[in-house]
Design a binder for these strands. Structure first.
Lengths: 140, 140
DNA sequence: TTGACATACATAGCACTGCTATGTATATTG
DNA sequence: CAATATACATAGCAGTGCTATGTATGTCAA
């Protein structure tokens, strides 16, 4: 699934910080985790993530250390700092405010759809998300 | 409330398009609607919105026309195009995919918080959002 | 009548961003 | 031994847009 760059830029920081709050991790594993969390919808590239990690480190939100796995592989583990935790809380608050706004207008649209679809008056009482699917081609 | 620019950039297009899907509107009214939808949390500036509108017009997502209100005021109304509707559907899908990812990791974090807060074992069964507030200083 | 404020739109320039393409290194597997 | 997986790095190509500031005009209170 393709995502516009603004959305990736807006979401990568909170996603990375949240994943690191789960527990210390390294680049490759973070990419795998994102894939997992998104049910395979989001595929971050190496080239994208590492500059993000470097930036977060520069900003003081995370701290890096090199470790050697049992296999002998070197990994660069990142740990979220207390500053990073504060930032994540802030980013989360902002995301949720914007998400609520979007949901509000989408809900308003589904109500509009309901009022124009009198033939489906019974369906109007069903969960609005289901309702949207029901109206399919009519409106979003 | 302050929002980082990436988040505004990522959300302004779907918000504008969705508001116009509710019905034709003009700049000033759109700003008021965003304010309303966000319960006053989001305050868009003129200087920000108009370039957005011009861009959306250039991209073919909206179409503009000048109208004169009864008071004699000239207003530039925007109408969403069918192309804009398609784009909104796509943007919505993307937003929801990313939102789901964020929710997934936040949920995972709340489960982590639950497992480390055995003294609050009873609260673990309460809605996770409430739970997060309950843990307040402990974790997000 | 006049100035403050509300309504409504415009945009230059200052300030800046980051992902694609590409590369290195090394463990694992067929 | 070559292909693939694991793991990290970054130059450069390609590009962005909001802040600060300005125009225009209707409304309202003193």
């Amino acid at each position: 699934m393709e995502f516009n760059k603004d959305l990736i830029a807006a979401s990568s920081t909170p996603i990375v910080l949240a994943i690191l709050l789960e527990g210390d991790s390294y680049g490759y594993a973070i990419i795998k985790r994102v894939q997992e969390l998104s049910r395979g919808h989001m595929e971050w590239t190496d080239g994208m993530l590492y500059p993000v990690l470097h930036r977060l480190e520069r900003l003081g939100y995370i701290k890096a250390r090199w470790e050697e796995a049992e296999s002998g592989r070197r990994r660069k583990y990142y740990r979220i700092t207390s500053q990073g935790k504060a930032q994540l809380a802030e980013e989360r608050k902002q995301w949720q405010a914007v998400d609520a706004t979007l949901r509000g207008v989408w809900k308003s649209l589904s109500l509009l759809a309901a009022s124009t679809a009198s033939l489906a008056a019974t369906a109007a009482h069903i969960d609005s998300r289901t309702h949207l699917h029901y109206c399919g081609g009519n409106i979003i």
